[in-house]
Design a protein around this nucleic acid. Sequence first.
DNA 1: TTTTAACAATAGTAATACTATCATTATCTA
DNA 2: TAGATAATGATAGTATTACTATTGTTAAAA
Lengths: 226, 226
Amino acid sequence: MATLLKLQMNECLYLKDPQDTELGRKIVQQSIQMIDELGLEAFTFKKLSLVIDSTEASIYRYFENKHKLLVYLITWYWTWLEYKIEFETNNVADPYLRLSKALRLVTEKKTYDNSFPDVDETALQRIVINEFDKTYLTKQVDHDNSFGLFRGVKSLCGRIADIVKEINPDYPYAHSLISTCLQAAHQQVFFSEHLPSLTDHSGANDKVYTQNYEFIHQLVLKAIQE
Amino acid sequence: MATLLKLQMNECLYLKDPQDTELGRKIVQQSIQMIDELGLEAFTFKKLSLVIDSTEASIYRYFENKHKLLVYLITWYWTWLEYKIEFETNNVADPYLRLSKALRLVTEKKTYDNSFPDVDETALQRIVINEFDKTYLTKQVDHDNSFGLFRGVKSLCGRIADIVKEINPDYPYAHSLISTCLQAAHQQVFFSEHLPSLTDHSGANDKVYTQNYEFIHQLVLKAIQE
DNA sequence: TTTTAACAATAGTAATACTATCATTATCTA
DNA sequence: TAGATAATGATAGTATTACTATTGTTAAAA
């Protein structure tokens, strides 16, 4: 049995910490399932309340609105990913190896993590693939950003960019490169399933993920080589 | 005075060709302004109808819904871009030069094109930056795709990927690479303005565009070199 | 024991994304 | 020139969404 863990989340993401109560955990758990199944647009607090046998008003006590809930879930994902990278690259001296490990963790297909029993990481990864861009492509980005709502991705991007700069301090586009890769990591999966002519990765089974790793790993290494 | 042109659009994108009538052209023109200003979510057919002194019902005779209108506008952009690339790379023998020209056109800041008096390309580029991902990140992608709604990007991506393959036929990720770059071409602009820690490009004036060209150009050349 | 917090139950509102119907006007045609 | 047809306007109506507000119940904390 893995150690049970709790990720520290930015308090602006919720009105009341959903990790503290039974209802809160049910909201998180079920909203992951429902957003995954219905997609963000068809998902509503009303529908969620029916499924978890509660009320709309109760859910509103935890999350200001659907958008904030989505940002919460996706931030959880990035924070979790960064934690995993930290864990796996700990004590690894060679920056090339650390970079490879990080990129593998970013691109690989996620499986259930016992340390967080409330979260279905597989479904959450699909949500990130399908909905992440919607968290920031809004008119209130700047407002949201000023409250630190995007610290999750930003921190992860910064951490991997640091490895890049360790390898080649003169490469001027470390952040651009890594943010591009974080995006490609899920966009190419989406394309392989829905718009295959935009990718060379095969949609069949889970091959996409390994192909994507190879594509991105190569892209990064070549880009930063002197 | 430039030659007046009309881009051929997929008929599934509209119910009635907006390029054929005065009202249709007003819908296109004004919707570009309004989506740019309000963002897609706050933009409604109701508001548009008030501005162009018409009615909701009349707009619905041209476009099935807001989503289709957005896809129409963005497809117009990709089709226009591809036309410009075709035009500029015509008779250029060297594939490296053609690739550079294509990437420059993809990344550069757009200015008004006299050949299409109804379209404000500058505003449209901002719409692509802010809203493009929303055209396909939906539960109906596959349905939409089956009607050819995404031919615009797909065709553009294919064309540039062809140049890549001409340079290095053994590079296995031509489409993945180019779709990644098409995405980066607008995502990095967005980041530089709203989430600057995700990019190295400066948000100041229009420097972003040239920096972005250099970043992407270098990325592609290094990726495909043998 | 009292108070408070958490939640349920219910109602209500403004806005959105449509659909439907009918009238008007301009144009094209027999 | 009448008469049909197409394009638009005017108006109304509906289901759903994204909330807000109020009141009541329960269970645990002070």
